[in-house]
């Protein structure tokens, strides 16, 4: 060890305050070091392990060609299991064999190597600093202030040529106003999710909960756009005994129809579908983070991380007895965001 000023060797000598380092423990011989039989045995074990690997590879190839998928879950499971186990043996044979070889047959005498301080020695540092100084002098960067400024500006600005087009394009039209709009508007029929069949008020029994989507054409329901619209328009509708309702909020007295009440199904916490309805307590539970809403009390939050009630969809029936929306939601649905109330 040389020039390692920072690496202090603690207590090189034993004294009254410090014990002396006893040095590397004595080497203990393994069986294979002294007993030729044990040595041979260990070698045989390694040979067996590598042979297992070869057999594993052969079985894996056989399994690949022999076990064909039959389209059932069970068939795929069998193929996965056989192929995977064969690969396991092919790999484990090599791995365990190599480790066993190293542990039983290769030298296990500990070797000591010196460390050097991580820092470069002083003379190296001096040369390094000198070289940098030479380079700076060559370039004359120190004297040419304007040049320096322009180079720095140019390098700092050019990434904008990539970043600005990228960032401004990935956000689409940036029309975040779409958060406020859903497919619901005056007269939109409530239909069953996912069939799209309109719902007659008389078909909804007391105590039942119905997953609802707005009525759209069948073709529209096959489009990608529908998924994004559905993610906002989902509604959960339940029918209560009208006497179970707590007094309605001002202006919402006529938003229900004969005990049928409809709320946005998108949680006001982070936007999971609030899909679990507890008939006895009239509670809606979000399975993601357990926000609990009281359907009988305007879907107010009774527990969990959500703050706001679920937005209510005002409903009524049309001339044929089908449930329709009186209007769209009167507030943005789903999780809160900065300009929600603006």
């Amino acid at each position: 060890m040389s020039k390692t000023t920072d690496v202090t060797v603690p207590h090189p000598e034993g004294d009254l305050e410090h014990f002396q380092d006893p040095g590397i423990p004595e080497h203990r011989h393994r069986m294979a070091d002294t007993d030729p039989k044990a040595d041979k045995r260990a070698e045989r074990q390694v040979v067996v392990l590598f042979t297992i690997s070869v057999i594993g590879t052969i079985v894996a190839l056989w399994a690949y060609f022999a076990i064909r998928p039959d389209g059932t879950t069970a068939g795929v499971r069998t193929s996965t299991m056989v192929l995977g186990l064969a690969i396991f043996f092919a790999l484990a044979g090599i791995g365990v064999g190599a480790i066993h070889w190293a542990k039983t047959l290769m030298s296990d005498h500990e070797v000591v190597e010196d460390r050097h301080a991580t820092r470069s020695p002083d003379d190296v540092r001096e040369i390094a600093v000198q070289k940098l100084a030479d380079g700076i002098k060559d370039s004359g960067i120190g004297r040419r202030g304007v040049l320096k400024g322009v180079v720095v500006s140019a390098l700092a600005l050019f990434p904008l040529t990539i970043a600005v087009p990228l960032i401004s394009s990935v956000g689409g039209d940036w029309n975040v106003g779409t958060f406020r709009t859903t497919l619901w508007k005056k007269g939109t029929r409530l239909t069953y999710d996912p069939t799209g069949r309109p719902i007659k008020a008389s078909d909804v029994t007391i105590g039942s909960a119905v997953h609802v989507i707005p009525e759209v054409t069948d073709e529209y329901r096959q489009s990608g756009e529908w998924i994004s619209e559905k993610a906002k328009a989902l509604v959960l509708m339940v029918r209560l005994d009208p006497r179970d309702f707590k007094p309605f909020a001002k202006g919402k007295e006529n938003w229900t129809y004969d005990g049928i009440i409809a709320f946005s199904k998108i949680c006001t916490h982070v936007g999971c579908p609030v899909a679990l309805y507890e008939q006895q307590t009239h509670h809606l539970l979000c399975p993601c983070h357990q926000s609990t809403f009281d359907v009988a009390d305007g879907a107010k939050v009774v527990f969990g991380p959500a703050k706001r009630p679920l937005p209510q969809l005002p409903i009524t029936v049309d001339s044929e007895g089908y449930l329709v929306a009186q209007d769209g939601f009167d507030e943005p649905i789903g999780p809160s965001y900065w300009e929600r109330l603006r």
């Binding site: 060890m1 296990d108 070797v111």
Partner: peptide, 12 residues
């Protein structure tokens, strides 16, 4: 452990 110091590395 014995013989292990900040100034060396002991192993294989």
């Amino acid at each position: 452990g014995g013989g292990r110091k900040d100034g060396n590395v002991v192993g294989f």
